[in-house]
């Protein structure tokens, strides 16, 4: 399994044709206390770089973009009961949705963990 990162602070785990998407620890730290997560319905087609989910913190609503295009296969039901999972476990239990990868070439240009860490250091 490989993990990629975007400059918009999403992470994406790729396993075969399936990708799991969430937001990074840096992102949750910036957003603060998360009170609601709106994940896409199963069957939704999401487009790379377009809105796919919404995170509501105490202070504001923020869009989460799809790192790649694909069809949503599953969304994280645990976030409905406990949106703070995104704060406590952003890169594991607080994942947002899984999708079927439409075009693997879209993974090119995403960052690996090392490149993302350097990117965040530069912010």
């Amino acid at each position: 399994m490989s993990r990629y990162f975007t400059e918009e602070h999403e992470w994406i785990d790729v396993e075969g044709d399936t990708a799991t998407v969430g937001i990074t620890d840096y992102a949750q730290e910036q957003l603060g206390d998360i009170v609601f997560v709106e994940v896409p319905d199963v069957g939704t087609m999401v487009d790379k770089g377009k809105d796919a989910a919404v995170v509501e913190s105490v202070k504001a609503a923020s869009d989460v973009y799809a790192p790649i295009s694909g069809e949503v296969k599953e969304s994280n039901a645990a976030l409905e009961e406990d949106p703070a999972l995104v704060n406590t476990s952003p890169e594991e239990d607080g994942w947002f949705f899984k999708l079927t990868i439409g075009d693997k070439s879209q993974l090119e240009g995403l960052m690996d963990a090392k490149a993302y860490a350097a990117f965040v250091d530069g912010l």
Binding site: E8, H9, E10, I23, Y26, A27, Q30, L31, V55, S57, K59, A60, A61, S62, D63, V64, Y65
Partner: peptide, 13 residues
């Protein structure tokens, strides 16, 4: 996503 968040703050505050 961060840029959106910062924009939200700017709008709000």
């Amino acid at each position: 996503m961060l840029s959106v968040s910062v924009q939200g703050e700017a709008l709000r505050y």
